[in-house]
Design a protein around this nucleic acid. Sequence first.
DNA 1: CTTCTGATGTAACAAGGTGTACAATAGAGT
DNA 2: ACTCTATTGTACACCTTGTTACATCAGAAG
Lengths: 273, 273
Amino acid sequence: MSLKNDIATINDRLTRTQRRIAEAVIEDESLLTFGNVTTLAARVGTSRASIVRFATKLGYAGFSELQQSARDEVSKKRTRPSQRVRSDASLEPLQDKIESAVRSVFEVLHQDRLNGMASPLATANHVWVLSGETSRSGAIALTSGLSMVRSNVMLVDEHSTGRELCGAQKGDVAVVFDFSRYRRHAVDAARMLADLGVTIVAITDSPLSPLSSLTDIRCELDIPAVGPFDSSVPAVIVAELLVSQVVRELGDKARDRIDRLETLWQATDTFLI
Amino acid sequence: MSLKNDIATINDRLTRTQRRIAEAVIEDESLLTFGNVTTLAARVGTSRASIVRFATKLGYAGFSELQQSARDEVSKKRTRPSQRVRSDASLEPLQDKIESAVRSVFEVLHQDRLNGMASPLATANHVWVLSGETSRSGAIALTSGLSMVRSNVMLVDEHSTGRELCGAQKGDVAVVFDFSRYRRHAVDAARMLADLGVTIVAITDSPLSPLSSLTDIRCELDIPAVGPFDSSVPAVIVAELLVSQVVRELGDKARDRIDRLETLWQATDTFLI
DNA sequence: CTTCTGATGTAACAAGGTGTACAATAGAGT
DNA sequence: ACTCTATTGTACACCTTGTTACATCAGAAG
């Protein structure tokens, strides 16, 4: 806003070419933030000197200072949501962190990426679910949801890794949740499965994660800290979105299975209502 | 995404300083888009040459090309919202539902109520954690977090309810997660524990829940549906908030335990970093 | 301990960018 | 038509930046 304000305050004192320059930078701010004097001059169809004079007219020492100001402006815009100021009850910073983490999950997980991650889960022979510690809730959510809509979903516990995984083979899919400190057993198991030809779907927190080099089918989440530990909320959300997408892909097959499950529940009187 | 992809595909071939560079540009993308070789090198604490080598390692001709790519990426991001309406159409209702569920968790869980639920967990002799199906992720999150900061935390599985609970007595606390259809075993177990004099902390979805009549220490959450199933996100958030509050109450005792846990992890080489 | 390899830093260089002095130009007023 | 002034373009000096060649250093292998 500050740039537009600057222009507005002196806009009646602008010369013709300066006005053209102003119009150009308002229409496409990247001319200022990413461009330089030469490109901007070319775009407007004027000389480079006029660009510099435009900057000084706005009150800056030169083009460089104007550019810096424009860059600061967009940087501030990007970081604002997290800095949002509010009253200081001790729960609110947590609320902020979690809410923005939730939002970022949906930014990362556009529909096409979600499709790319869910499709293998719909078609795989077996689905193996691996996780570290903080991501365990996500793994549970995925296993629980997925096993209600398809068969052969296995949660692999740390202490039973070898025994359970020995049947894995090509055509299977392994979903690996792991964050921040990267539990060795999860990473090792994932690497082993990848070597066996199993398709890896990774939910992790950084392109620098050891999981990221194993597969293209993955997403990187922002993980907020809640108290001393990392939150598993983003992982759980991803798990639930994956399940709902798999359900959509499987269509009637999933519905049938859910129906059969329901009759089983009824027969065993599992629920109170 | 393309930058993060680029980094991910070669992340295991990065040298130490190159990894530091990668971490820096992932954390603050403006270092790439707005910065230059000099500033990035200064930020990372390395030489300018290493920055250039990092760019070439990623497959670019040099830093300039990498910067251009980064700039293109954010330019694309800025124009995306218009496409987003179309391509993300099916995700947006879900996003709305989850975000407002998150918000409602914090509306329900004012600081005093959170205190009331967390305090018993800090002082109890034993903490028993029970759950239904969709709330299982929350139970896992609570058990996992709580057992890192205090001892005698037990997750009670459906098939082992009797065996595990027979030691419960006055002075213990049971946290029960259960929603919507109210799994019979969770409710029955909670009732039994209440009869034994165990303090019940309930996380459920309605004052009409069978759990609500057992205890005053409880909260009622709005549970959104994600696909055909109920979301466990609210339960997980409550679990994490409880843990963070217990940590605050236990103070140094919790910190000591975390420290000991850390040395154990170090000794057993549990994590990659 | 020595050697070798790869990673890192230093320094030089070429290219490109900014700012300014100065010349050219356009336009208004006489 | 002439002059004066404000505006714009040109040219140049200076500085910064990206790149590369070379020297140094650290660490693994023997």
